[in-house]
Write a protein that binds this DNA or RNA. Structure first.
Lengths: 333, 333
DNA sequence: TTGTAAGCGTTATCAC
DNA sequence: GTGATAACGCTTACAA
């Protein structure tokens, strides 16, 4: 064996258990140890690493999961992905994530790439409620689950977003708010839609339906929340309670309120969703509906694994919890 | 050709340009279109996608970049990764990211996996200053760059963290603060180290050295910042200015201050680093040193591409900018 | 047990 | 040009 430090096994080191050339080198110096161990040691020494591509090619399965997220800079999605990565490892899978930016062309390109890599299965975190893309994807015959957002009857693991909306509504209603507004998120994302529905249903049931003009769509980031809040504050009289379907949007709302000299929890109650780690640390801590992000990711892998074993796939709705803090005014005198 | 909808080309569709069985099917119905286009169309119809594994195996290069980050739930790292993903695409590369959690064993396992996939090159976003792991990695002979954190003389793209620390110091000094504290980040991460060094150097040069007890290590998250602030507030008299080397830590500091009845910008000036999108939206907007995250990611890919072309690799330090807001008290009367 | 050969899907080489 | 063939690194089925 020439100079070592070749990382790729171009010769026949992989056939080391049999009797190819390199066996000579490998077994030279075999000093009583069990061959298998000695082999592993030498392999390590020369920096041999099995070629996963070759293995995948030969076995026609890769144990690779493709994961498509809207954007990993969204804390929630990144947290879900961490759950996915960990659980996948537990199941003996590797994962490959990509950002689709919620853009059809980008998603298409990335999915094609993942198909080219012959992923064994897929997890979509960016489904649109209409389910158009996902429906189409079934044609590939590759098992998949949705996470974070549901679509049609496809197996999915989500937060019980409807219940989350009701929790927020119940809280604001109990505090006496009757004139409320909703920052509703993206119109094609089931999570925002369901949270909004849960919220508005609750108020409608109590005889105080939320006027549609007080429900404004917005992106999940703080800029979207800020903008939406400006719209809400145009109403006369303005709402005394705001439910934002995402914490970043809620913080955007806080920003706009501050600009108008209004304080969250004093002038306007603000409830967010997601319970970001920083929510509790803010100067005015944010009341938020918490959702088990990490678990959501992990459970989606479990569901996928079941599906791949041919077991029936039951969609999962994980339970949200309300975390009451000062931004909804409930702790102030 | 039998029923379509087989996603994998098990037969000979790939040899369609030559004269294998399937050519028949492919060329049947050729109605004047240029063959190449017709082929592409049929390929699309049957759902044919080239096998990237096979290509990689044959060509001995994958155009795949391995990316190792500490945690993608860290906004900065996720943003850097987005820059990497986009730039990689521009260069004709795909990327595969993994979370190392700054844990040697996890990092080792993930790197081995990436080597097994025969990545053409690597980007490490989680290097330790001592450079131990990275030094070792050079043995593989695979080109790589560091991003976000530097180590030794290895090519890296980072924020000019030392300058960032000086910016923060200059600002607090100009506001009249002389008794300051630093929440210094992880002791093995160059970015925190450099920011701290820049900050303390500035104060030392002005004749007001920061006592070492007023420099406390902490994780970059808000819990770390909260804890560190408790330590800082034990000092008598407590510091009137705090520089946290990360915004999340800064928000943690804000949380602890609030618990003690101290208000950021009034009782204690707080300066963060990273300029999170929400920094400007908070009830008390956060003064922060901004760093070009997306660009950092993109430039690291450019640097890597140059390196792979055999060009000499010059490390890059991108310029930070100070964003003054109310948490440092500078805008209050 | 140990060894051999075929084949996964692609590309590169060489002969026609 | 066009068409056949070997090879990439691995697994697996089968033969010795």
């Amino acid at each position: 064996m020439g100079r070592p430090q070749r990382r790729r096994c171009r010769s026949g080191l992989h056939r080391v258990g049999c009797g190819t050339v390199s066996v000579e080198d490998v077994l030279t110096g075999l000093d009583g140890r069990r061959p298998a161990e000695r082999i592993r040691q030498v392999a390590r020494e020369v920096g041999y690493v099995p070629d996963i591509q070759a293995i995948g090619l030969r076995r026609q399965r890769t144990r690779l999961l493709g994961v498509v997220m809207a954007r990993l800079t969204d804390y929630g999605l990144a947290a879900i992905y961490e759950g996915i990565e960990r659980a996948a490892m537990r199941h003996g899978f590797h994962t490959m994530v990509t950002n689709s930016w919620d853009d059809p062309a980008t998603r298409q390109a990335h999915v094609e790439m993942l198909l080219g890599r012959r992923v064994d299965a897929m997890i979509f975190g960016d489904a649109h409620v209409d389910g158009a893309f996902v429906d189409e994807f079934t044609a590939h015959g590759i098992p998949f689950v949705l996470v974070n957002r549901r679509a049609g009857d496809h197996p999915s693991v989500t937060c019980d977003d409807y219940a989350a909306g009701r929790l927020a509504a119940e809280h604001l209603f109990a505090l006496g708010h009757r004139r409320v507004g909703v920052i509703a998120g993206l119109p094609y994302a089931s999570n925002g839609i369901d949270r909004t529905a849960g919220f508005t249903d609750y108020f409608a049931e109590r005889g105080h339906p939320v006027p549609s003009a007080a429900i404004v769509d917005a992106s999940f980031d703080s800029a979207g929340g800020a903008l939406a809040t400006e719209r809400l504050l145009e109403r006369q009289p303005y709402p005394t309670g705001i439910f934002a379907v995402g914490d970043f949007a809620a913080l955007g709302a806080v920003g706009t309120l501050r600009e108008r000299g209004l304080y969250p929890g004093r002038d306007v109650a603000v409830v967010g969703f997601g319970d970001l780690p920083i929510a509790a640390q803010l100067t005015v801590p944010l009341t938020s509906v918490s959702s088990p992000l990490y678990e959501m990711g992990a459970r989606s892998v479990d569901l996928l694994a079941a599906l791949m074993r041919g077991e029936p796939a039951e969609s999962l709705r994980l339970r949200p919890e309300l975390r009451v803090r000062e931004s909804s005014g409930s702790l102030l005198p």
